[in-house]
Nucleic acid binder design. Structure first.
Lengths: 351, 351
DNA sequence: TTCAGTCTTGTTTAGTAAACACGAGCGCAC
DNA sequence: GTGCGCTCGTGTTTACTAAACAAGACTGAA
C-alpha cells in the first residue's frame, strides 16, 4: 500500500508538524524556526519525498531574458555578462527562474509564442536589432516587459538604463578640463538609443564651451565590421588636421581605435588622448589603461529583474526609467589630470 | 475595578477571538475574514477601546516633505501643487502621514532635529536653495531620503525626476523641425540641476544640426526678479539681430517672456515663436496657448513616496534615479507643424 | 469511451498560542 | 524624597495550525 511515494501529509505526521508547515519549509516561506525546518527536511529525506504537481507550477515563476544573438556566448560578453549575472542573482533571491532566449536578427518572425506560454514576464536586454514591433507584440499580449539599456521614444516602457547622457557628458567634460579643444568622437549605430544618448551628452558638454564636433571628426560607424572603432579612427587619422583627443562611445570602440592610433605610429595619450564609456573589465588592461566612465552593469541587471517582479506583482503601475549612476574612472589614456596639455601643474581651463 | 479602559485582551474575549486577531484587525493585516473583522470592530465600539501606546507609534509612519519657502502656498504652486498631491495620495494608500516642512533660505541653520525625531524618512522637493550640506546631514543621521527634481552630482542619492534632458531635446527638436535656425534660449539659475539638464538637452538637439546658441542669445537669469523671463527676453529683443524662435526653460519663464515680446509690439508665433517645458496648468490659457513639454508632476510625487517607502522597508538597496516620461504638447505658440516658416506644406528639414 | 463522482495532491485562507519588548507603576532601601 | 530593581500589563511578533480550496488522477457505472 505504500507503493506510492510519500505525500506532504506523510512528511507532516513523520515530522510531527502540520502539512502547512511542511509546505512552508519546502517553499522557504518566513515564519519557520530552524529546528522545525531541520526536522522536516530530514523527514523528507527519510521518506524520499518528491513533489508531484510541481512540474507545471514551476513555469509560473519563470521569466524570460531576451538577448540579441551577437552577444552570445552572452555569459562572457563584455557588457551583458555582468547584466545577466545581476538579473540571475536577483531572480534567485526572488525565487524565480530565468530562461535565456536568443533573438536572431536573420530570422524575421521571432518565435514569441514558444516563449510566452511558459513565462510570466520578459526582460529585453539590448535592442538595436530587436525591432520595436517585437516589443510591442509582447505588450499586446499583456506580458510584463522591462527593457535594458534601451527605450522607445514616445512609447513609455519601463526600462533600466545607465546614465548614458551624463556618462557622455562626464567623459567629455573631463577631456575639456584637461585643456583639449580639438576633439573627435566615434559614435555608434543610431539604432541603439543608449549610444545616441551618450553622444548627446558629449555634444552638450561641448556646447557648454561653445564648441561643436566638426562633421569630419564624427565618422559614421562601419556596420558589421568586426573591430568597432578601428576603421572610424583610420578615417580621422587620414585627414589633414588631426584632433588632440578622441571620445569613443564604448570601450569596445575605444579598443579598436587604439589599435588604429598605434598603427599610425602615434602615442597615447601624448599625441592623441582617448576616453570612452562602459568600464568593461578589459578596459583596465589596455595599454595604456583606458580612462572611461563606469556603467554599473550588475546593478542594471538586478534592478531590471526587481522591476519586472514588481510589475508582475502589480506594485508598479506607472512606467518609468530607472537610471543608475555612472562614475568617471580616470586611468592613463587621457593623461593624468595633473598634467594637462599646456599646463603641467593644473588642469587647463581655457575656453 | 473596571475603571481602566479595555485592553486588547478584553476585546479578544468579548469577540471570541485571539489577541493576535484583534491586533490584525486593528492594523488591517491580511488574513482576516470580513465577519471576524466586523465582530472585533463592534466589540471595540462596545467596550470603548482606545489603544494606549499608539500615541508614539503613529509618528513611526510619518514622513516629512521638505520644500523651499518660495513655493508656499505650496498647495497651489504651479509645479509643486501636483507633486504634493501625488506624494499625499500615495502616502495615504500606504497608510502613512505626511508632514509638510518648509525650508527658509534666510535661516541658515535649518532645524532638522525638530523634524527627524518624528519622521521615518524625508522627501525633499526641489533644491536650489536647499544646500547640499543639509541633504548630507540627513543621510548622516541615517534618515532615508528621496530627492524630487534634483540630484547631486557624484553623490548617488535616490531621486525622482522628470525626463528633463529629453524634454529640452524634444522642444528644441520641435522648433528645429519647424524650420527655425535662429533660436535663443532663456535659461534658469544653475543651482537647479533640473533646469541645467533641460538646457543641456536643448544644446544637444541644436548640436545635432551643427548649431550652437550664440552667447548673446543665452542671457543669464535675473536672480530674485519677480517675473522670470521678462528681463531676459527684453535683453534679447534689444539686440540688433533678433531670433525667430525662443526656448524658455520653464513655463513660468515663458509667460514672462511673452509679456516682453508683446510689449515690443511683436506677434507670437509669427514674429517670434516660443516653446517651453513643464505643462503647468496655466500654460494652456496663455495667449496664444503655449507649446510645451509635459512633465508628469503628479506621477513624480507618487513615485517619490513609493520609493521612500521602499527604502524605509529595506526593499530598495541601490540608489538610482527614477525618470518619468515627458511628452511634447503642441499648441499654438510655435505655430502649427503644418505651416513652417518657409515651407507651408512640410516641416522644414534644411540644415 | 466517456463522464460523473470521489480521492489525493499541493496550496491558500484565516486563525491561534506563546514568546517578546518595553514602559508604568510599585515597593523598598538609602 | 530619590534612585533601583521588580513585576505586570500593554501592544507586537514569531511560529505554527485546522480547515477550506483547486485541480489533476483514479474509478466505476452507463
Amino acid at each position: 500500500m505504500n507503493k506510492s511515494k510519500a505525500s506532504m501529509r506523510d512528511i507532516a505526521s513523520a515530522a510531527g508538524v502540520s502539512v502547512t508547515t511542511v509546505w512552508m519549509v519546502i517553499h522557504d516561506k518566513p515564519g519557520i524556526s530552524p529546528q522545525t525546518a531541520e526536522k522536516v527536511w530530514s523527514a523528507i529525506n527519510d521518506l524520499d519525498y518528491r513533489p508531484r504537481k510541481s512540474g507545471n507550477n514551476s513555469q509560473l515563476n519563470t521569466v524570460g531574458l531576451l538577448i540579441e544573438q551577437s552577444s552570445i556566448p552572452a555569459i562572457s560578453d563584455v557588457f551583458y555578462g555582468d547584466v545577466i549575472r545581476g538579473v540571475q542573482s536577483e531572480a534567485e533571491r526572488l525565487g524565480m527562474r530565468v530562461v535565456l532566449s536568443v533573438f536572431d536578427r536573420n530570422k524575421r518572425g521571432f518565435d514569441l509564442n514558444g516563449l510566452i506560454h511558459d513565462v510570466r514576464g520578459v526582460v529585453v536586454a539590448n535592442d538595436g536589432d530587436l525591432p520595436a514591433q517585437t516589443v510591442l507584440q509582447l505588450t499586446a499580449l499583456d506580458i510584463p516587459i522591462v527593457l535594458i539599456e534601451s527605450y522607445i521614444a514616445a512609447q513609455d516602457f519601463p526600462c533600466v538604463l545607465g546614465d548614458n547622457f551624463i556618462a557622455g557628458y562626464q567623459i567629455t567634460r573631463h577631456i575639456l578640463d584637461l585643456g583639449h579643444r580639438d576633439i573627435a568622437v566615434l559614435k555608434g549605430p543610431s539604432k541603439y538609443s543608449s549610444l545616441v544618448d551618450r553622444l548627446r551628452g558629449c555634444m552638450a558638454a561641448m556646447a557648454e564651451e561653445h564648441l561643436l564636433f566638426p562633421p569630419e571628426w564624427m565618422p559614421e560607424p562601419m556596420s558589421g565590421h568586426p573591430i568597432k572603432g578601428y576603421v572610424q579612427m583610420q578615417e580621422i587619422l587620414a585627414l589633414d588636421r588631426r584632433p588632440t583627443a578622441v571620445i569613443a562611445i564604448s570601450d569596445k570602440t575605444a579598443i579598436g581605435a587604439m589599435d588604429a592610433i598605434r598603427e599610425a605610429g602615434l602615442r597615447i595619450p601624448e599625441d592623441i588622448a582617448i576616453g570612452s564609456i562602459d568600464n568593461t573589465r578589459e578596459s583596465q588592461f589596455t595599454r595604456p589603461p583606458l580612462t572611461t566612465v563606469h556603467i554599473p552593469k550588475y546593478e542594471i541587471g538586478m534592478l531590471a529583474m526587481q522591476k519586472l517582479n514588481r510589475i508582475i506583482m502589480g506594485e508598479d503601475t506607472t512606467a518609468f526609467k530607472s537610471v543608475v549612476y555612472s562614475e568617471l574612472i580616470v586611468r592613463e589614456s587621457c593623461g593624468s589630470p595633473g598634467r594637462s596639455l599646456e599646463n603641467p601643474e593644473t588642469p587647463g581651463n581655457a575656453g
